[in-house]
């Protein structure tokens, strides 16, 4: 095989670029998973949530979350005629053990809203990190590198949804990983696995066969705080305008 000097000069940089991609590969722990084939989000159906707290307990168990801290939690909204736009919101211990009973004869309506990281595609939290410790993975999950995080808590302040906290033992920022260790192995998240009513459903927006596409066509879904243009990927069905 004869390669002219000119051809070699063209081939070398191309090979260098190709090798970089070979080296990059995919995460070791999940050999068959291709990050470029997924774009993860979550569908949360408020009309199905019964406020049992299964998701909160499952998340704490799966991810070893210390007591009193939450990667996901459930809020109960109480809307009355007096404060339609500023409803009363409670979330005792994140809704982990359910909610107090509704007093008889109270006015207005109640509903549950499960909250979690929205895995925004234009996330404010990743933009403020001074050291590159939090980022959006190539498959659309907002993650934290605990070895790089300084614990400065800029991201905790930047998240408009209050989804981040400083881990009391590790002293670094912590948040929902969308059970990255599960979804990369073909499982659903712990909260979705534990939800008895299907109020939470993991959604792969890049997978044309994912039921999310049919759902989005036939339902009117919203995201939280659309005015913040975060590109949130936690889609809420049946969301009341009063939910913040």
């Amino acid at each position: 095989m004869n390669i002219s000097r000119r051809q070699l000069l063209i081939l070398l940089p191309a090979a260098a670029v190709a090798w970089k991609y070979v080296e990059a590969g995919t995460p070791e722990a999940s050999p068959n998973y291709e990050m470029s084939e997924h774009w993860w989000g979550m569908l949360i159906d408020i009309t199905k949530c019964i406020g049992c707290g299964n998701c909160v307990r499952a998340c704490q168990k799966e991810n070893d979350i210390p007591d009193g801290y939450f990667r996901t939690w459930v809020e109960r909204y109480h809307r009355t005629d007096y404060h339609l736009e500023n409803p009363e919101v409670i979330s005792p211990d994140g809704g982990k053990e359910g909610f107090p009973s509704v007093p008889e004869g109270t006015q207005g309506d109640y509903f549950f809203v499960p909250k979690m990281c929205n895995h925004c595609s234009d996330s404010p939290c990743t933009q403020v990190c001074p050291v590159g410790a939090t980022f959006i993975s190539p498959d659309g999950v907002v993650l934290i590198d605990p070895k790089y995080c300084l614990g400065c808590a800029y991201c905790v302040q930047a998240c408009p949804y209050g989804c981040r906290y400083i881990h009391p033992e590790k002293k670094v920022a912590d948040k929902c990983t969308l059970c990255y260790h599960r979804i990369t192995k073909g499982l659903t998240t712990a909260c979705c696995e534990a939800c008895p009513t299907g109020a939470r459903q993991l959604a792969d927006l890049k997978n044309p066969n994912d039921p999310i596409h049919a759902f989005l066509k036939t339902h009117t879904v919203q995201v939280l705080k659309p005015q913040m243009a975060t590109g949130a990927k936690a889609f809420y069905n049946g969301l009341d305008g009063s939910v913040r």
Binding site: A29, E62, T177, Y180, H181, R182, A194
Partner: peptide
Amino acid sequence: EIAAHPIKF
């Protein structure tokens, strides 16, 4: 590293 977290469910 995040993907290597052990599965409980």
